[in-house]
Design a binder for these strands. Sequence first.
DNA 1: AGCACCATCACGCAGCGTCATCGTAA
DNA 2: ATTACGATGACGCTGCGTGATGGTGC
Lengths: 181, 181
Amino acid sequence: VTTRATADGPDDGDNGRGTAKRADGLLTTGDMARITGNTLRTVRFYEEAGILRPDRRSAGGHRLFSQRELDRLQFITDLRTAGLSLDAIRSLLELKDNADTGSTAAGAALEAINEQIESLDHKLELFTRLRTELLQARELLTNCKDCTNDRCFPDACNECEVVADKKLPTSMRVLWSLDTE
Amino acid sequence: VTTRATADGPDDGDNGRGTAKRADGLLTTGDMARITGNTLRTVRFYEEAGILRPDRRSAGGHRLFSQRELDRLQFITDLRTAGLSLDAIRSLLELKDNADTGSTAAGAALEAINEQIESLDHKLELFTRLRTELLQARELLTNCKDCTNDRCFPDACNECEVVADKKLPTSMRVLWSLDTE
DNA sequence: AGCACCATCACGCAGCGTCATCGTAA
DNA sequence: ATTACGATGACGCTGCGTGATGGTGC
């Protein structure tokens, strides 16, 4: 008997949005996972965590999700990529339910949204900075591709003409073990 | 005897770069933590993980870091914020050491850098999209701040004039439990 | 009846948070 | 000698990965 491991990994395959498989329009756990680029485990975990809810179960116990839940999962996935914890995401998603009036709900939502926008701004700033630093590093290192100066290589790159006296971003200095400033 | 809990939390305080405390210019674990916005625990953990190395220890066993290590920690912190695992960061930082010639080192570095640039591009795209969606949501919800229509509120926001027939981003529909499309 | 797909434990790992206890630094 | 700061366990938590084993869908 050959023991075959079930492939639970993420598919990363084509995100064909028009992949309407079932007649009733509902989505299986696998559909949810494939479309959003998550694993089955993750989808199940999110249900267990209470931030995702299958519309119903099939007679045999298979989870069946509505399109709404797919959108929800995609949103959750995006927020996770943005670095939010499941707790933070949960409170965002439960904001409306936990308020008594439209006004208070909107108030709480606005506060949370402003917070997230600010945090996104910080990350955008950091990421663009990192990106340009990496671009600079790439520029420089293309010259090193033809480096034959192997008696200077690991330890004396500081004195190399390719690198010397240039204003290098700190990340490049860290990456290439160059002297500080 | 009063048992006092030691405040190990992140300070998030002023990142005074010019905070040269010690005469020898070396930095304590706390300095490293404060400046980069990490906790003591994290700094120690990174040493244990082998991606950070104190210059030396004091006679009493206190870690002492050089300026280089501070830059290294800042880089690590930024990459963590960008979503990289410690393993991925480690291999980036060890790239140069693990290559025999300058040419192969540069080659490997270029490959890794290109990968990271691409991944940063994806995240930048996602984050800007999320940001604009949140801005749209904020715009709309400012109207709801004055919502007194509490017999329609939780369940019938769909029919509300504030929301009706507008092209809303999916994330807003998810947040406010509105109908799909 | 076959094969892909799904469910449910159960264990494990990364990346820290959080005490508790005790030693250091100036 | 005081006061803030640091070191070292040890246990806990989140957010999943990774089988193992067995049932479901068509």
